[in-house]
Each structure stands twice: as structure tokens, then as C-alpha cells.
Design a protein around this nucleic acid. Sequence first.
DNA 1: TTGAAAGCGCTAACAC
DNA 2: GTGTTAGCGCTTTCAA
Lengths: 334, 334
Amino acid sequence: MRQRGITGAPATIRDVARQAQVSVATVSRALSSPNLVREETRERVLNAAAELGYQPNRAARGLITGRTGNLGIVVPDLDNPFFTGVLKAVQAAAVQADYSVFVADSDEDPVVEEKLVRTMAQQVDGLIVCSPGLSDAPLLEVAAKSSLVLLNRVLPDVPAALMNAANGIEQLVAHLAELGHERVAFLSGPDTSWSNTQRRNGLRAAAPKHGLTVTELGPYPPRYEGGVAAAEDVLGAEVTATIAYNDVMALGVLARLREEGVRVPEDMSLTGFDDLVFAGLCDPAMTTVAMPVREAGRLAVELLLAGPGEDDAPVRQEWLDTKLVVRATTAPPR
Amino acid sequence: MRQRGITGAPATIRDVARQAQVSVATVSRALSSPNLVREETRERVLNAAAELGYQPNRAARGLITGRTGNLGIVVPDLDNPFFTGVLKAVQAAAVQADYSVFVADSDEDPVVEEKLVRTMAQQVDGLIVCSPGLSDAPLLEVAAKSSLVLLNRVLPDVPAALMNAANGIEQLVAHLAELGHERVAFLSGPDTSWSNTQRRNGLRAAAPKHGLTVTELGPYPPRYEGGVAAAEDVLGAEVTATIAYNDVMALGVLARLREEGVRVPEDMSLTGFDDLVFAGLCDPAMTTVAMPVREAGRLAVELLLAGPGEDDAPVRQEWLDTKLVVRATTAPPR
DNA sequence: TTGAAAGCGCTAACAC
DNA sequence: GTGTTAGCGCTTTCAA
């Protein structure tokens, strides 16, 4: 993949050493610990390296240092903007710290997920796992051997970047109560998902405080079609507002409701979670809870790079706030 | 990142060799070229490896074979579903072939893009580049030294996976003409973008055949805000239909037009490009040209893995068809 | 401040 | 079929 002049073979540290009239050890030092070589020597080495277009071979370096210079991230679905938002932040933070990033997409399949996590763990210095489907045991096992950070999932002694849906939900419930709603539906996502549990529990806790009664429906697939299916159930539920597990699902509900002649928000208020771009672009624009996707990605990388810390330091599981975004799908009930 | 029993150190090929009572060479063979060892021996090795949880060190293997087992992809924006669609397909195809994939996001900055391409080229066996902004010279330079495939961009002697916008445009123009439109606007994306040029030229070629007059407006940033800005110009252009550079931009146009009290499609037909999910979810649902994102990703990996082929074999630059998707933003002019 | 040399874990000749 | 051994390109003792 690299080349030295006409020969076609990439320049190695020996080529640089020869060109600069020094030993390979000196070249290595000039590049990795500049303060260990005389200024003039370093300059000679740097020039030689530049002339030959020398790039240290990362595999060789990794072999000896034990570090790869890579981070990894496993996500369930690259088509979901929520995860690509995290990915974008992760990759930006990684580049900043001179790491490269591997991605793997499990397509929401727990079996594939486990395989990907295991495979990846051995090629990276740290791994970020966003996998609602994977069970605890394999995750804990990998975490014991590798440097791993969980995103939106809590496991004992595993560092994690967490989005605190509870405070967004608190705001959401207050908002609906203030509009005058009393009976709302919650459209559940996958049972196994930590996020779904967190949202459901947050709702259960917040609703009574504001005099709201919650009807839990589902679970439904956390996708557009899931929302379409859920819309049927909503119509039979005698509620004036519907809280969908996420934005994509809410969009499905919106479409189906419209087909049924149910107007949003006049006949039914509707909200989502995530605040994906198109939540602001659909019509009517969606009231939703914004998740700190960017910050979470950045935080995950930070936790990874910070390493385990002192032996007795507590494992870092850090919470990020979420926030209600009021748009046009919520209004007073009729 | 790996571990052997209590010691904490990962098992190496020597540990396996000892455990299986064979030489390291035999272990290596049993794992990489099973047909070179006796069945019984192989089994012993495999058992030992499993017992120790042995995973070959890829850096060491790469050092000697010269191959990394990694592919890379550089995209301008992971927030754009067009690129994550490609990424998703790339990663699926890569895993299939037992490769891992690196991603890098240049944030549409040509300088960053060049740096990423160069850095990545040396850590992978093949690189997929989707970068509208990067100029030809550095790409050709990297292509000369590395195995590189271009996505939606043509450069001499560089393999490429290309989406043939022309046939989607042909259908689009025919559709508009059939509805009775005679004057249409084209909202241009970035001047430097190969895709934009291709779309613009396709339109210039197809329009006369169907009696359409095209007014070219822009360039505008290929984002939502770009569309919002463009909408102003559209209103002054005396056209009955507007063809936006892409879906995201079309969405901006749609929103602004609505604010102005211009109804789509009654007062103005509107189309996009890409057929992103939300093109089907917005209201009214967008008529657009679907790009074969999945197929292109798969093809790019295929081209990479196929390698350069015979010395005199022509470089493969393969075209994929695009297709008009008629939804609700197009109608006869008033 | 520099050089010589010993490996990191693995594969690929080359012998047997 | 299997073992011995020489490196792949680099970092890091240890001496000088």
C-alpha cells in the first residue's frame, strides 16, 4: 500500500536509517521520542523520512507496543441516524486523539452482535458497544479481558456513557399535563432494550406526579412499520396523547393516523424520542425528547482513552441530560 | 485485549504448540492451511487453541503476509443517510469476506479528506473513497500506490462504482413532460461535485428531447438550509416544477415554499435525488430519483477484492442504474 | 547521544 | 506431515 521511489516497495525504517546515516534505533527515537536525540540528528532523520515518504508500519509497531491505535464501535443499525450520530462523534474524537475507528453493524442480530464484539475486541485498544440485543454474560466476559465502554446500557463495573431519558421524560410529562392531557399511551420498543426499559420506567415514575394515566402498548419493532402497526392499537386505547418509543416509530404512527383521518395534534398528540433530523422536518414537526448523541459519542471515547484509572477508582458510568423539544405534534386535547 | 487463564497475557501460537505437543509451524498450518496437516493433528491443535482461547494476532500475521485484513471507507458526512447507506452495505460485504472496515468522516473538508485518505491507505488492503471535495491529483497519487475504488467519481484508470443518474433523469424529465410541464428549475449542488455535474449534464441532455426548458439556479449547499435559500430564487424563476440536487435540499425547498403559501404539488411540482427514507415519509411524500446505494457499496467491495486483475485487463468502472420514484410532490401545472 | 541486538507473534521457506 | 529457522518492521533494553 506504500511505495519507495521506483522500487514499488514501501520505505522501511532501515531505508531511512541508511539515508540519514544513522542507526534504526535513532530513527525510531527521532520519530517517537524526539527529546532523546540531538536536534541536528533529528532533523536529518526527519528530512530523510520525508524524502522517502516513510510511514511507520503500524502493524510492526503494534506488535511490539501491544497497542493498535484503533478503536472500535459496534452498532445495531447504520441506517438509524441515532447510531450514525454517535458514530460521527466517536470518529471525530478518535481522529483527534490519533486513533482510527472500526465500525461493525450487527443488523440487530444478537448472535452476529456477539461475534462482532469478540472479533473486534482483539483488534482494537478499546471498544464501544451499543447493542440493545446482546445479553449480559458475553458482554461481561469481553469487558473482563478488554477495554470496553457501553453506550446506553448499565452493567456492573463496566464504564458507560448514558443518556438520562428520565429528565426528558419528566419534562415531556409536565408538558402534556399542562396541555390538559390525562390519559396517554406508551408505545413500547423491544423488551430487551435497556433504553426501552429506562423510558418506560421513567414514564411510570413521572406520570403519577402529574396526574397522568399511562396505557402501555406493545412491544413493537422500533421502526417505521412498528409505528404503523402500533397506530391501530392506539385508536382503541382511549387516550388523547401517544408517546412512541422513538422518532422513527412515531413517524409510522403519524402516517397511519393520517390515513385513518385522525388529525395530529388536534385529535391526538404524538411524541417521539431521539430528535432525529427528520423529526424537525416532518409535517407537523414532531415534539420529541432530544438525546445527546454527539456528547455521548465524545464521552465514550474519553472513557476509553482515560483507561481503567487507579485500581480503587470507581468505574465511570456517566449520565448525560436529555431535553424536551416542543414542536407541532402536541396540543391540548379536544 | 486477550487473556490466557489466570496470567492475563493472551495466548500465543507457542502456547498452543506446547499444549498440542507440536511445533508452532504445525499450529500455523492447522489454522491457515488445514489440508497440509494430518486430520488427527489438526484436531489436537484446534482443541488446544480452543482451550486456551487462542486468537491469532493480526498485527503479527499482517506483518509477514503484508495484508491487514482491513478495508477502509472515507465519506464526507456520516449524518447524510446516503453515505451511511453505502457504509452499511460496504461493512456487510466486508464482513462476508472476513474483512473489517475502518470509517473516516471528513466533514466535507477537502484538506481533512486528503489527510484521511492518505493515512488510511496505509492501514488497509483497500480503500473506498466517496469524496466530492477532494481534487484529482492526490487521489491519483494514492491510487497509484494503493488499491483504491472511487464511488461516484470517474478518474482515468481508477476502478469505480458509479450510479448512472442519467437514466433516472431521463425518466424524471419524461414524467414532468407528460404531466404538462414546460419550464423547470434545477437547483444545483456544489460545483466541484461529480454527482452534481452528472445530474446537471443529464438534465441538459434530456430536457430538449422532451420539450423542457431548464433554468439552472445555484449552486447551493447540498443541505436543508441550502434548499430554504434556493426556494426564494425558485419563486422568481417562472417555472412550474423544481428539480433539487438532492432530497435533503428538496426538503428545505418544501418547507420554505409552504411558509410562502405556495402549495406543492398544486402550485409547484418538486423533486429530489437519492430517495432517502424520509423522502417517503415527508408530507407530501417526495417524488425523487432512487440511487442504488446498497448495490454500489457491495460493488465497491467487490471491485476492491477482485484486485487489479490481469495486467492488460481494463480497469473496471461499473455503472448502476437509477430509477424514478413517483410520489406526491409532482402533478400537472396549473 | 547513539548503536547493536534482542525480540514482539506470526508465516514461509527449507529440511527431514 | 512435521519441525527448524529466518525473518516481517519496529521498539527497547543495554552498552558504549
